[in-house]
Structure formats: C-alpha cells, structure tokens
Design a protein around this nucleic acid. Sequence first.
RNA 1: GGACGGUUAGCUCAAUUGGCAGAGCAUCUCGCUUACAUCGAGAAGGUCGCAGGUUCGAGUCCUGCACCGUCCACCA
Length: 753
Amino acid sequence: MIKCGNMKNLAKNYDPRKVEKRIYSKWEKSGFFNPDVCLERKKTTPRAPYFSMVLPPPNVTGVLHIGHALGITTEDILTRFYRMKGRRTLWIPGTDHAAIATQSKVEALLEKQEKKNRHDLGRREFLKRVNRFAAESRSTILGQLKKMGASLDWSREAYTLDKERNKAVATAFKKLYDLGLIYRGVRIVNWDPKGQTTVSDDEVNHEETEGVLYTFYYEKGFPIPIATTRPETKLGDTAIAVNPKDGRYKKYIGKKFSVNFVGTPLIIKVVGDKAVNPSFGTGALGVTPAHSLADWGIAKRHNLETKQVINEYGKINENYPPFSGKKAKEARKEIVERLKKENLLLREEKIKQSIAKAERTGGIIEPLPKLQWFIDVDKEFSFPYSTLSFVKKGEKTTLKKLMSLSVKKGWISIVPKRFEKTYFHWIENLHDWCISRQIWFGHRIPVYYRKQKPQTEDHNQADNIHVGESPPEKEGWKQDPDTLDTWFSSGLWTFSTLGWPEKTKDLKNYHPTTVLATGYDILFFWVARMILMTTTLKGEIPFHCVYLHGIVRDEKGQKMSKSLGNALDPVNLAEKYGTDALRMSLIMGSAPGNDVKMSESKIKAQKHFANKIWNASRFVLSILPENKKELEKITSKNTPLLGKDSLSYKNFSKHVKEVSKDIENFRLYLAAEKLYHYFWHTFADVIIEESKQSIHEGREEERLSASRNLYLQLIEQLKLLHPFMPFLTEEIWAILPKSPGSEEFLLIEKWPQ
RNA sequence: GGACGGUUAGCUCAAUUGGCAGAGCAUCUCGCUUACAUCGAGAAGGUCGCAGGUUCGAGUCCUGCACCGUCCACCA
C-alpha cells in the first residue's frame, strides 16, 4: 500500500461557494486578463497572433438575465481558450446607456414613486436621476460579470456615454454628415405617442389583431368606393390611387373631385399607381400621405399634397372640427356612425390586421411626417479608403452595398451560416435609418442652429447649421434638442472601445476584432449597424466572424421574462449550484443559433459533474506519493507509459485534438459534451477503475506508469475544462503538484497539443 | 405574403464528412465496496413527424406533406 495522506484535508464534496470569489480576485490581482501584462510577463509574445473581442455591452437598465449568462459564458470560453493557446488576448468590458430603454425605466419609477414626469423635473435634473440610476445598474452588472467568471480586461472598461465614446460619436456623426450620408428631412417616421419620440423600424413590434375594414363612399354620388381600417385618417386624403391597368377606374385617372367627407371638404385627385392591388378592398385606395408610409410613397410619386390629421398625442388636430381634440379611435367611431346615417357605408368586415407597437413603451405607433435626422442607406458616395478588396478607393458605393458585400465577399463570416441569408434579406428591405430621438438621455445630436437674420437670408444653409462637437464661437447658436438612437453609438463599439478617433496602439493591435459573439435577436439592431459604421468610418470590418447564439427559454420553450415570472436569475443559480455548473449547463446542448431550454435540473446535473471532477482529482492526489523524489518520477517525463497506459494516453490525445478543433470551429456544445463524457465515462469509470489494480497490486513500473497516466490525463483535462469550468479547475490546479515548467495559474497555462 | 428553424426515450436535448440510435433528468431493482450516495451496478423505455426517392447502407442527402415555433414585409 502506498501512503496517501494528500487528500485528507480536502472536503469530500466540492463547495463552489468557498472557492469562486477567492479565485476571481486572485485572477484579477494577477493582471493576466490584460494582454499587456501577459506580454510583460512573457506569457505571450508581440509576434503572436491576437484574439480580441468586445463584450456586447449590457444595457444599464437593470440586472443581467440568463441570456446574458449564455453570451458571457460563450465569450469567456473563447477568450480563455485563445489565451491558453498563447494568443495576445483581449476581451473588453463595457455597458450601454440604452437611451430609450433606460429613460423609460426611470420615467416609470419617477411616476410611481413621486407622481412626476420628466418635464416636472426639467432636462438637467432628470438627466441627473437617469445617470444615478445608470451608475447603480452599472456596478450591479460589473459584479455579475465577475460572478460569472468573465476574464475581461477591466482596465479597458468602457461606457457608451463616457467622455471617450462621446467624442467618438460626435466625430462619427460629423464624418457621416460630411460624406453626405446623414441628412435632415421630412419623412414618415414611426411616432410613439406614449414615449413622445420617434423610433426606428427595428424598435417596432407588429402584433396581429382583428380589425375592421370599412368600405364606403366619401359622399353621395361619388363614383369610387374606398376601403380602410382607419376612416378617421381619411380626413387627410388628397387622392385616390388605382391600379393603372384596372378597367373599372381607368377612366377616372387624372380627374379631380371636390367632395364633402363627413362635413370636411376634400379635393381628391385620381392617380394611377402600380402599388395598388386591384383585388384588395375595392381596388381603389384613398391616399392619406401623412399617415401611411405606402401613401406617402404614392404622394411623392404623384406630387400630392400632404395634410396631417392626427397630432403627436394621437388626437385629431385643430383643423378638423368637430373631431378636433378627439382621440383617433373616438373620431373613427363618430365618422363611421355618420357614414352609416348618410347611407354611405357599404360594408364592414372583420380582417386580420397587424398593429405596430413601440417595443419599449407599448405605445401604438402613429406614422407621422416629421423633420428628423436620417442615415441614407441608398445614397452613392465615393469610398474614401483603399483597405477593403471589394470596394476600391474613390469607387461609388452605398451603405447597403458595404453592409452586404462585407459578408458576401467573405470578409465577415456568420456562424451559423444560414443567418447570412436572413441578413441579406434584411438589408434588401432596409429604409433610411431615423437616428434622432425626442428623448433626453443619450448623445445629444452634435448639430447647432442659428436663426437666419433677414439680411443674410440667402438660402445658404451652411451659415445656419453647424455640425460638430461644439458650436462656433460666434453668438446665437443653439444645439439640437434631440438625442441619437442608442444603436448609433453601439455601432461604433468595436473601435470606440479601442480609442477611436485617436490613433491608439490598441486600435492598431486589436482591430478588427476576431469574433463577435451575440444573440441572433440583435443581428439587425447591432451587427448590421456595426458593419455599416466600421466600413464607412474606418474602412475596416468590425470583426472577422459573428457567432450567433440562441435565446434562453424556459422548460416550456417560452421566452424568459420578468412579467411571465419564469425568468431565472443567473446569480442566484450560480450561488446555488456554482458558476461552473451554470456555465456548463448553458453551453451543453446549445448549438449555434439554436435556442436553449433551461431548467434547474440541467444545472444540477452539472453540479454533480463538478463534484465528480473534484473527487476524481482527490483520488489521483491520493495515489501521488508524498516523498518528493518518488513524486518526481510521476510528474516528470522520464517515466515511460507501459502498453495499456500508453494506449490509453494515445486515445486521450485524440480527444484533445477533437476538443480543440470543436472549440476552434465554434462547436462549443460538442466540446463540452465530449469533455463531460470522456471525464466521467472514460477517465473515471474505466481508466481510474482499471488503474486501481496496477496501483495497488502491480510491480513498481506498472504502478508508476498507471499513476503517471492518471496524473497526466487529469492535468490535461483540467486544462481542457478550464475555459468551461474555470473556478473548479483553477482550484484543483492549485492543489495538485505540478510538472516542471508549469504556470502558477491554470488561466495562462499552455493549451495541450 | 416571403424566409428560416424544429419535429429522435415520459421530459430536455445530442449524434461534427451518410456507417451498430446516445446523454442528463424522471422511473424500477440492488448496493454506503478503501475518490465520489452530488455515487456505483443493473433494468425498462425509440416504426428518429408522415409519404416517397437516392444509396451496399439514411436520424443524417433529395422531393412532397403535416404540425409547432421564429424572423422579415408600406395590401389600404
């Protein structure tokens, strides 16, 4: 029998609570999350390839949810893997101010706690409150990131609204403006009457509801019946559009009618437009340019007048008595009543209708023509860089083309590939991006206006608009009161975090970033915008690869949310089962782009796995001799592995290669599964069990060979498992005797070959 | 209207280039044996959504269908 005193002081069961905090602070103190320290301490070399990533900045609206935990785990696995591979590895942390989301959260709190709105406080005081809220959220979030074990370089932490990023935003705005890609103009926008602001197409959700399609004549004797779900907007009709091929109405095209519609005089021109579907409704469309994007397009094509009926509060404006001041819905009811009374209503039919709601406030979107700032995605401009192969310097291109070609030409790959199709499809349907918001929290638009003086009224706009970080020195300039869409600043994230617009070393060393890992739900919001911004402002791609993970759902497959009460809190779970178990359970069975169904039993299983690793390690520790010289025989390379052990180790080497390949190819779920399976069902169940005989009863060489095989395989499995289960593996690493040349921290240990 | 994904054991999901259908949880039986009862040994449980086709061989490739889900879309 060998003496086995080594494991006496180790608990029989692994208790993550006693380990995780201590280990994280050890890592932080070591400085190895920072590639500069790794370089200094020669853990990597200046000539090593880099691996860089940004953390998709969590919104400062509250706390991290389990979806974040999946993203963080995915990213941390990649980061730890490449760090161990010897790359110059940088993962940058940060948070997002999330303009509308944060502002509406604080507004709701204000309403609830003090029965006040933001105007009661005023812009300055209100912003103070929001910033205070954001700061609290930020520190909660940072704590949670650490709890998850994220090996982020905290020395480079960024915030979308901090000084550096503010400068980046203003610079970006000016540059895009100078390129002619940002313009101010009147267009139909998505107006949120509840939030009193515009929102972009992507911030609108469509819900299917039942609506009523009313078919009627404007007045008695009018030849063309029209159909609409919103009779109240018809007060603003300026035309009827019919399909030019429609025999029924051909003869009316070009004619003008004066009608009296429920007491309001209208001048209706009949136009032919091929956007009109002859088989829907009556085949004739009452054109309301101010309140429908489709009609706006028709009006543009036929030079029709725009008459606004509904105001910013969703009420009929002052021009339409007796309906003025009434809510759209009430006005609708009254108008329909009147049409009925006058015998003008032909039909009422129930139809399925999709209703647009603002994502954040739930307000029903009112399409309104408004003067706003836009990014023009179709405008041709000459590309100012010679850094991308698919567009030459000086060549005419558009933002849409840049976004599309970056992926099409293989500069950026999307994993899984099927999302590339979705991406292209989205770009094809893209309209100009409305970037101005009538909210207070965010980047104030870096534009200043001056009232035109009568004597200088020469239509020279440049005299009265100034685009830049600060106003010109002369008097009378007022900054635009609006703020920018939050995704404007997020779009700059890969390079604004590295110091742009300054020419920093970080930019040179770590951009383009290697991978962007994020949920597929923000492919359009964020990923596409980043590609847009980076190609245009830097002549670079933001990342070489986009890894899209799924959404975390509950056991029933429902999206987790606070309101449904099925949300799992990652910090609670980590506390209960250990972070490593939580991480493992999130990764296992989650193929790229696939949703993950989570349940506590899954996490529990991984807690058991952690315990298994702990105990197998205790066993290996128990067979290691205490005597230094004896121990060296096992830890050093000089002891040969005999037949069976040698074969077992060879097999293990295959496992190592497979796992490495899986991680390199983003098959993290497969790597995790293999690690689990090999450790439990090969290493513990078979190899350890079979070694027991050699160790207890074998000859000296057999004993040494078996012990060395166990020791080697354990050590190397700890390395393989480290990216997935960093705390447990680091803890065991600290306890096990090391081979010559090993690192103090598993964190920076070389990845097995 | 367009596109995408899913359908495999009671539940949650795997099966990387086509090669004997696998895990975890739950269930049943037995076992506290000197790493681990957060464990071990064993059992039961599957016409891989349906219908065709390609192939020596199909859960995997092709065609069609069904159901569930998701995203996109200016048919009022």
